[in-house]
Amino acid sequence: MSARDNILGRVRRSLGVSGGDAQRRAAVVSRLAEAKSGLIPARGQLPREERIEVFAKYAEKYGATIARVGSIEHLPQEVSRYLKSNNLPASIRMGEDPLLKDARFESEPMLTVISGASDGTDVAGVSHARGAVAESGTLVLASGPNNPVTINFLPEHHIVAVRAADVGASLEEAFAGITATYGKGEMPRTVNFVTGPSRSGDIEQKIIMGAHGPRALHIVIIG
């Protein structure tokens, strides 16, 4: 008998059930198939324009800074402004994400754009979040060929673009979006839910920003 069989056997003996019980199996199959949403707090059920307000409120509560621009072509300018106002070099690390490509960073000739995964030397990284969760001020970033995970964690400053239309109200909405893109029960390798910049309270419970991930998170809402 394998460890697997022993463990499953012990679970069944302890519960006093058999693996072949059709009713139990049906309960599990339907729960997984339906994947019903549970209780969504009122705070997670807001109409569109209010969502953006609430999203910004919580993201700021957790230490992010927020800017809003009218359309994606204004992103490069906002990135330059952010870097300048924080006295940072005019250089960013960025994936080949289609939305970020549409931003046409050539419009900022002084800005160096390095593409691909981060090697840990970048001061600033730019990502596109596929969604956001208003109820907690959380960004939703999915990995993929054009979306390296390392950019979310290695640069000191993380600048994240999210389209206003993609700001959802609740966690459930974010999951529904992922299911719509990747298929039921399917996920990209990594989905990061990010709420504010990295921090640690491990020394005397005093919260200090910038533990291992970015020290600063700047969110640019598009539209």
Binding site: S143, P145, R189, F193
Partner: peptide, 18 residues
Amino acid sequence: DMSVYTTFSTGPKRADDP
């Protein structure tokens, strides 16, 4: 309300992941 990072990992990196 949420911890800073809640991360879902599924399998190894995909063929074209950087």
